[in-house]
């Protein structure tokens, strides 16, 4: 009984707020809400969004953003974390700077990316002054662009430090002994990394990457600031339908939110499976 009592306050809040909110979203997406007289659940909101032009493109764009941001952040974070293991002048400053990234909200970072990478931004100006381009139009379109480069730049900037910090914590726990043992048995540095260190880092790397994927997939304010006019990220589309003054669009917004939750939830389940295999689940 004791563990459940200790968990009760947390579970009460989680189920009461999070569970109820998800439940309501689900109910409304099936157009079921007895309070306003809707007692016959149906799937019309889902058929409407799936057949609407542009919805699948939006989902595809969001998947592209999430996969790209997660993989790029993970690769950069791995390199950074490994580099930060070595002692060098300014290592403390660099570690501090990585933590700075955590404290900067997404909205702020997104505006910064806009000022840097837009076609009239800081880099375009430098390119112009260096004689590389003859005007803003000649600079590649990196923000508000159809390939979402600007959105991914922001996520890589923002989430790379997050994954790095998690990896640094893991590295600290793992310690240098395993690698050293492998090296003393004749493994090359690459072999020691790939066959000894990387598998040990994998659970935290996967968990952090999955979190980044899920966040980038469902975020709203960043694609709103940095995205192109079409297609829109699926969260932007959902919020737009939700704030549509046509009430008929509400269940469709809820259905989109459910689709987002299902895809992100799929990541959670896949992650739990992977971690379970790695022996993390049932301590």
């Amino acid at each position: 009984m004791r563990p459940y009592l200790m968990l009760a306050p947390l579970l009460f809040v989680l189920c009461g707020l999070f569970g109820a909110a998800l439940g309501l979203t689900l109910m409304r997406s099936f157009r079921y809400l007895p309070a306003v007289g809707l007692t016959e659940p149906d799937l019309s909101a889902y058929t409407a969004i799936l057949t609407a032009p542009g919805f699948l493109e939006s989902v595809a764009l969001s998947v592209w953003i999430a996969v790209g941001s997660a993989l790029l952040s993970a690769a950069l974070a791995l390199a950074t974390a490994l580099a930060l293991r070595q002692a060098f002048v300014g290592r403390g400053i660099l570690t501090g700077l990585i933590q700075v990234g955590l404290a900067v909200p997404h909205v702020v970072g997104a505006v910064g990316i806009l000022y840097l990478f837009s076609q009239s931004g800081a880099f375009a100006r430098m390119a112009f002054q260096a004689g590389l381009i003859d005007g803003p139009g000649a600079f590649p379109a990196l923000t508000n662009d159809p390939y979402a480069v600007g959105i991914m730049l922001l996520y890589v900037w923002k989430e790379m430090p997050f994954i790095t910090l998690i990896l640094l914590a893991s590295l600290q726990r793992i310690g240098p002994d395993h690698e050293a043992a492998a090296r003393s048995l004749g493994a090359t540095p690459w072999q020691a990394f790939a066959h000894v260190l990387l598998p040990m880092l994998m659970p935290s790397l996967l968990a952090a990457t999955a979190l980044v994927f899920a966040f980038a997939f469902g975020a709203y304010e960043v694609p709103l600031l940095l995205g192109a006019h079409a297609p829109e990220a699926v969260a932007v589309l959902a919020w737009r339908s939700h704030t549509d003054v046509d009430l008929a669009a509400r269940p469709e917004a809820m259905a989109m939110a459910v689709v987002i939750a299902v895809i992100a939830g799929g990541m959670l389940v896949a992650l739990a499976q992977l971690l379970g295999k790695a022996g993390w689940g049932g301590r």
Partner: peptide
């Protein structure tokens, strides 16, 4: 691509794009 907002277009105008 079209600007999504008037502000984006104002920015383009301000910078001579």
């Amino acid at each position: 691509t079209y600007p999504t907002t008037l502000v984006q277009m104002n920015e383009l105008f301000a910078n001579g794009e």
